[in-house]
Structure formats: C-alpha cells, structure tokens
C-alpha cells in the first residue's frame, strides 16, 4: 500500500487513540495544519480498513470511531523511521539543521 499523505496523517492521528471522522479531521488540522476533505478522509479510511491497518469500533450516535491495529502501527513506525532518515539527509544536504 502506498503511503499517501492522507494515509500517513490518518494513521498518525489514530496513533494516540481511536477517533471518529470529525475528530480525525480536527486533529489533523491541529497537528499538520491540513484541512482534509471528507472524501479524501474517508477514501483513506476505507483503504486502511481494507488493508487491516485500522479497524472500526461500534458506532456511537451513528459516529463510528476507528482505531489503529498492531499491523497499522508497525507499518506507520517503519514508514516514519524511513521518512525521518530521508528528512534528515535532505536537510543536511541543504545545509539546514533538522528541527528539534
């Protein structure tokens, strides 16, 4: 599965606990400054659920929370480590220090 930006954002948001669609959108807006559209957000959720990286919890007032699975957490961790190495290398080559 490709790690598209929405997929990474959703997995990252779910890494600290289950959330429903609106909570995900607000959280992503808070930590990444990105306003994910509803179609993009649910496209990512459906792909992640198909892949088994997230799972749906029982709905509450018709709002269904999702939580990251162990496989999803492993995949996210692997991706973020690589992304961190790429970011560090890029910043070094640009003669910039990684932000602390």
């Amino acid at each position: 599965m490709d790690f598209t930006e929405p997929v990474v954002l959703v997995l990252t948001s779910l890494a600290d606990g289950p959330k429903h669609g609106y909570a995900l959108a607000k959280d992503i807006e808070t930590f990444a400054g990105i306003k994910l559209g509803p179609g993009t957000l649910y496209g990512a959720l459906s792909r992640l659920e198909d892949r088994g990286w997230i799972e749906a919890l029982p709905a509450e007032d018709r709002r269904r929370p999702y939580q990251i699975t162990a496989a999803g957490a492993d995949s996210l961790a692997t991706h973020l480590v690589i992304a961190q190495q790429v970011a560090a290398t890029g910043l070094l080559r640009l003669d910039l220090r990684p932000a602390r």
């Binding site: 890494a15 600290d16 606990g17 289950p18 959330k19 429903h20 609106y22 909570a23 607000k26 959280d27 808070t30 930590f31 919890l57 509450e60 007032d61 018709r62 709002r63 929370p65």
Partner: peptide, 21 residues
C-alpha cells in the same frame, strides 16, 4: 501540539451538532 488523551483511550472530538444525523 498538545496531546490530551493517551494511547488506547477513546478520544472523540465533540461534534458541532447532536448525533441525530
């Protein structure tokens, strides 16, 4: 960035309206 809830805890942002749809 602030984290208000820990891992595994159900974190549900209050929605702007009720759950009636």
């Amino acid at each position: 960035m602030t984290r208000q809830h820990g891992v595994g805890e159900l974190r549900l942002e209050p929605a702007p309206h009720d759950g009636s749809g």
